[in-house]
């Protein structure tokens, strides 16, 4: 056992929290050779202080920006620099928001859109995964379908709206639209992820005598978790786009319906309320996907 001790030093355990980098948690990161917590050097303390101050400044500037824009908007509409009929104004949007919310209509519309997006996302991710696995499994199939995928990707899927409407009817066409818009990119992202995921690992699996199914289950899928997470983040956004498009084309409820209806009856307050809620919803959905992604990635120890 000559000198195992020499080699048993642990590498720093990765504790970075995503691509944001320095996000106020910098102090928690420990690397070998640094001062242990409690005996930080003066320079390091100063560095941390400056980083924190910078972070606070960025946050403040963000809030200030949105507050300033809202204030200018409100003021411009009130003194009629702009026509409030066309632009609405934040105070009207807020009151319209509360009115709709207290009547429960806002909740209904948001829920319809949320439900459609959830279902669309599930279908599109599930089918996308299956398709990507099939393309990984057969490189012949993948080569054959390559140009078709390129065309499908380039095609503005919105153009398929009338087709979905006729084929699927007024309710299901929303899902058709949502899946059509999100699935192609998902398949392409997943497929390239699968191909990248550990060529060396596959050589190892081959040398161990693994079957194709074992390679997929034991190596490719777990190694692709970061790519699956990335695909999820892109997918959720595109699915929402598809759902709103679908609701524009035909629907009786949902935020897309609300926005379109508001436009038709020239109620900019309604339109803006719908858009604002949609913005909140999209952030929430993306956050949810990102959170789920982080949980999964932590479980699989992959960055």
């Amino acid at each position: 056992m000559s000198g195992f001790e020499r080699d048993t030093g642990l590498r720093p355990v990765a504790t970075s929290r995503g691509p944001e980098g320095v996000d106020g948690t910098a102090g928690r990161r420990e690397a070998p050779g640094t001062h242990p917590a409690g005996s930080r050097s003066f320079l390091y303390e100063r560095f941390l202080r400056e980083q924190r101050r910078r972070l606070v400044r960025i946050r403040l500037a963000r809030w200030f920006l949105v507050a300033a824009l809202l204030a200018i908007w409100e003021a411009a509409a009130r003194v009629h620099w702009v026509d409030p009929m066309l632009t609405s104004m934040p105070s009207h949007i807020a009151s319209s928001f509360w009115k709709l919310a207290s009547e429960g209509r806002l909740g209904v519309h948001a829920w319809v859109t949320l439900k459609e997006t959830g279902i669309g996302f599930a279908i599109s991710m599930g089918a996308g995964l299956l398709a990507a696995v099939a393309l990984w499994w057969s490189s012949f199939l993948s080569k054959v379908l390559e140009p078709y995928l390129v065309v499908l990707n380039a095609l503005p899927k919105v153009a398929l709206g009338p087709i979905f409407y006729l084929w699927l009817g007024d309710r299901l066409s929303i899902y058709g639209m949502a899946v059509a818009i999100s699935i192609v990119v998902t398949v392409m992202m997943l497929e390239s992820g699968f191909r990248e995921a550990g060529r060396g690992k596959l050589k190892l699996m081959e040398a161990l005598g693994a079957t194709k199914w074992q390679m997929l289950r034991l190596a490719v899928l777990p190694a692709s978790v970061p790519h699956i997470v990335a695909a999820m983040k892109v997918n959720i956004g595109l699915t929402l786009v598809g759902v709103i498009m679908g609701e524009f084309l035909s629907s009786k409820a949902g935020l897309g319906f609300l926005i379109l209806y508001g436009g038709q009856v020239f109620q900019m307050d309604l339109v803006m309320t719908g858009v604002a809620l949609l913005a909140l919803l999209s952030i929430a959905l993306y956050g949810l996907a990102a959170f789920a992604g982080r949980v999964v990635q932590r479980k699989y120890h992959v960055e």
Binding site: G198, G200, A207, L218, P222, Y300
Partner: peptide, 25 residues
Amino acid sequence: YMLQHDHLFEWRDVLQNVLLGAEVR
């Protein structure tokens, strides 16, 4: 067969990695 890179699976701990071949076979 031992390759140039260890190709350990990040999502498995050391024991599970060491048992990969046994699992495959």
